[in-house]
Amino acid sequence: MKEEIIMAGFGGQGVLSMGKILAYAALLDGKEVTWMPSYGPEQRGGTANVTVILSDNEISSPILDEYDTAVILNQQSLDKFERTVKPGGTLIYDPYGIHHKPTRTDINIIPVNAMEATFELGNPKTYNMLLLGALIKARGIVSVEDVMKGLKKTLPERHHHLLGDNEKAIRRGMELVG
């Protein structure tokens, strides 16, 4: 098993955290993992992306030309990464703020209305967890149980009262993929 994933959006949307939680979950499942961030000097705004590779075997390059799966949170990232999904691969994106939809026909395109759903759930900070839920449902790469364990490791203890909200968001994200 090897899954090469790019996650991309605006800085502050939680792209790097989403990747980190996924990497932890895979680590707990005994997989080899790399998490390679790319972002500018800005603390918020600007674009941020992270390459996450999960594999049963040793991972060579932590940066890639093309990906099995892309999780896309804004237009700039869609413009940049749509063409980098391998034929037959998966593109998950949030249509919120997207004016030019993906056009490729040789990949599996999954729109996930995460921004809409996060306001329904009432905690916009769990936005990235909706997309993570959608990703694990669509790709079956890690279990929701391992994601929750990964989240517990990643989230500082003072925020552990938010684990429930996050799990709700992950499960809602899974439902959105259907």
Binding site: K20, L27, E32, V33, T34, M36, P62
Partner: peptide, 9 residues
């Protein structure tokens, strides 16, 4: 900086 910034086991 790549090895400095990336996470691995």
């Amino acid at each position: 900086g790549m090895v400095g910034q990336m996470m691995e086991k």
